[in-house]
C-alpha cells in the first residue's frame, strides 16, 4: 500500500469508526432506558420517532442549544479540556477493536479495525488509564466540592479495578500467545472437538472478573458510586452543562459499548461465527456476529443496572483489592500450570 492510499484508507476507517460509535451511542442510550423501564413495568421513552428511538437525538439537540455554564472558581483551561479528553480516550479505545473479518478487495486486504496494534491489549489498558485523567481533571477544575469528591472516588475506583481488569486478561494473552486483538480473535476461530466454538469464555473466572471489573471501570451500576446522586449530586460532572456535559455522557456510553465490544472480542470469539452464502455475505456476517455478541454483553450491563443496588464505597474497595485481585492472581497461576502441563507434560511423568 502506498503512503497516500494508506492515508486515505485510514481516514475513511477513522470517520466510519467515529460515525459508528456515535450512532451506537444514540441507540444504546435509548435501549438502556427502554430495557430498564421494561424491567420496572414502565414504557420508557416511546414518543420521539418509532418506539422513541429518536429520543437520544432530541436530548442531544437540546443539550446542544443549552448554555454551557462555567463556575467562577473553575480552572478554565482544564475545565474545558476535561470533557474533550474523556471523549477522545473513549474513542481511542475503539481504534484497535476488530469489528469484522479482513476484507480482500483486489490484491489488498483491509482489516475492519482502524489499526491492528501488536500491543493492542496494553494500548487499551493504557488509554483507559488516561480516561481517569479526564474524570480527575473535571472534578478538580470545577472548583466545587461534590465534583471533587466524585472525581476522587472515581479515580480511586478506576485505578483499583484496572488492576483486576488487566490481570483478568493475562490468561487470555497466555492462551492466545498474542496481545494483538486481531490475533486474539483469530486464536478463537477453531472449535473444541468440532462441537463447541473455541472461545475464551472457557476461561470462565477470567470472563467473570473481566465483566465485573468492566462494570466498575465504566462506572456503571452496581459500581456507580461516582454518580451517587444521593450523596454527591452528579459526581465529577456536576458543574458541567450543555455540550460539555453531553461530551461526558457520550464518553460514558462509548466506554460502555467499548467494554462490551472488548468482552466480545476477548471472550466470545469476536467476529467468529458460522459463515455461509455468497462472498459478500461472508464479509458481512462476521460484523453481524460481532454486533450480536457485543449487544448481548450490553444487555448484561443494563440487566445488572436494573437488578443490583449500588454497593458501599468500602465494599467496593474491599471487593476489588481483597477478592478480585487475589482470585485473578490464583487463576493466572492455575492457567500457567495448565499451559506448562500441556507443553511439558506432568512433572512426575
Amino acid at each position: 500500500m502506498s503512503g497516500l492510499e494508506l492515508l486515505v484508507v485510514s481516514g475513511i476507517k477513522v470517520v466510519v469508526a467515529f460515525a459508528f460509535l456515535v450512532l451506537t451511542v444514540l441507540v444504546l442510550v435509548w435501549v438502556e432506558r427502554r430495557v430498564v423501564a421494561f424491567m420496572q413495568n414502565r414504557y420508557g421513552p416511546n414518543r420521539a420517532g418509532p418506539g422513541g428511538i429518536l429520543q437520544t437525538l432530541a436530548d442531544g439537540l437540546k443539550l446542544f442549544f443549552k448554555e454551557s455554564m462555567t463556575p467562577r472558581k473553575a480552572q478554565f483551561l482544564l475545565y474545558i479540556a476535561a470533557p474533550v479528553l474523556a471523549v477522545v480516550t473513549a474513542l481511542l479505545v475503539f481504534v484497535v477493536i476488530p469489528i469484522g473479518a479482513p476484507v480482500t478487495i483486489g490484491d489488498t486486504t483491509y482489516t475492519l479495525q482502524v489499526t491492528d496494534l501488536d500491543v493492542g491489549v496494553l494500548y487499551i489498558l493504557a488509554i483507559s488509564s488516561l480516561g481517569v485523567y479526564a474524570v480527575a481533571l473535571a472534578g478538580w477544575s470545577s472548583g466545587s466540592k461534590y465534583p471533587l469528591l466524585g472525581s476522587v472516588r472515581s479515580a480511586a475506583q478506576m485505578i483499583s479495578y484496572e488492576a483486576a481488569l488487566g490481570l483478568a486478561l493475562v490468561p487470555v494473552i497466555m492462551f492466545s500467545r498474542t496481545t494483538s486483538l486481531a490475533g486474539i480473535v483469530e486464536a478463537q476461530s477453531g472449535t473444541f472437538g468440532g462441537l463447541l466454538p473455541a472461545w475464551n469464555i472457557v476461561l470462565l473466572p477470567s470472563f467473570v472478573i473481566f465483566l465485573i471489573a468492566g462494570f466498575a471501570e465504566t462506572n456503571r451500576a452496581p459500581f456507580d458510586l461516582v454518580e451517587a446522586e444521593q450523596e454527591i449530586v452528579g459526581g465529577y460532572h456536576t458543574e458541567y452543562s450543555g455540550m460539555r456535559f453531553a461530551f461526558f455522557f457520550l464518553a460514558e456510553y462509548i466506554n460502555m459499548f467499548n467494554m462490551a465490544a472488548l468482552t466480545a472480542t476477548f471472550f466470545l470469539g469476536g467476529w467468529n461465527g458460522p459463515l455461509f452464502g455468497p462472498t459478500w455475505l461472508r464479509y458481512v456476517l462476521p460484523v453481524i456476529w460481532f454486533l450480536i455478541k457485543s449487544w448481548v454483553v450490553v444487555f448484561l450491563f443494563i440487566w445488572a443496572r436494573g437488578t443490583l443496588p449500588r454497593i458501599r464505597y468500602d465494599q467496593l474497595m474491599a471487593f476489588g483489592w481483597k477478592r478480585l485481585i487475589p482470585v485473578s492472581l490464583v487463576w493466572i497461576m492455575l492457567a500457567m500450570v495448565a499451559i506448562g502441563v500441556r507443553r511439558f507434560g506432568l512433572p512426575w511423568a
Binding site: 430495557v35 421494561f38 424491567m39 420496572q40 413495568n41 414502565r42 414504557y43 440487566w303 445488572a304 436494573g306 437488578t307 443490583l308
Partner: peptide, 18 residues
Amino acid sequence: RGFAVTFRQMFRPKVTTQ
C-alpha cells in the same frame, strides 16, 4: 435470583398510563 426477577418483569404488563 434478582436477575431472574428483573428478567421476568420485562414481560409483565406496564403500569404506565399513556
